[in-house]
Amino acid sequence: MNKTEKTPDDLAALFKKLPAQDYAQAGEIGKTLVAGGANTVRLLVSLVGDEFGAADGAKPKEALHALVIYASRPGAGAERKVVAETLSKELAAEHSEELKAFVTRQLQLCGREEDVPSIARLLGSDRLCEPATQAIVAIGGKAARQALQEALPQSADQRKVTISQAVDLLSAR
């Protein structure tokens, strides 16, 4: 483990500082989280936990959201890429659908075209089709439209409505 990697105890100590009471402190928290790299992203996802809305998942959720926002600030391309790439991989891990929905909503904020294929794998899920589609629409671009168009023939019922509407929206842009 390198010295910037975070342990659950490190993160528990950081959670006590959330939310920061000024932007200098907020910047320090952002830097600390980003410095933890992909392992910290994965650890935070696991700490959010599979149960939707559980009280002990609130601070990890806040911290992961903070990391997503901080790493996506203007001019922070490399940091954002690590966070988004790691979150995209988490979509294929053994997590509850609600946890994956939360991760997908973070990708709605920080994802880019290269994250679309990972998100698009959720389009076949009745629960996750909606957040996945919204994230893909938010990312936009050619890869997004193509992924939705490819998923459309395999979709049915509400998923078909969701994906088809998204294709129309992206085509109209």
Binding site: I69, S72, R73, P74, Q108, L109, C110, E130, T133, Q134, V137, A138, Q158, V161, T162, Q165, A166, L169
Partner: peptide
């Protein structure tokens, strides 16, 4: 302008069939 992430909150995709 100049902040793609913030701009994603200007027009948030809606849950279908609503748009």
């Amino acid at each position: 302008t100049g902040d793609e992430q913030a701009n994603r909150l200007v027009n948030i995709p809606m849950r279908a069939p609503w748009h």
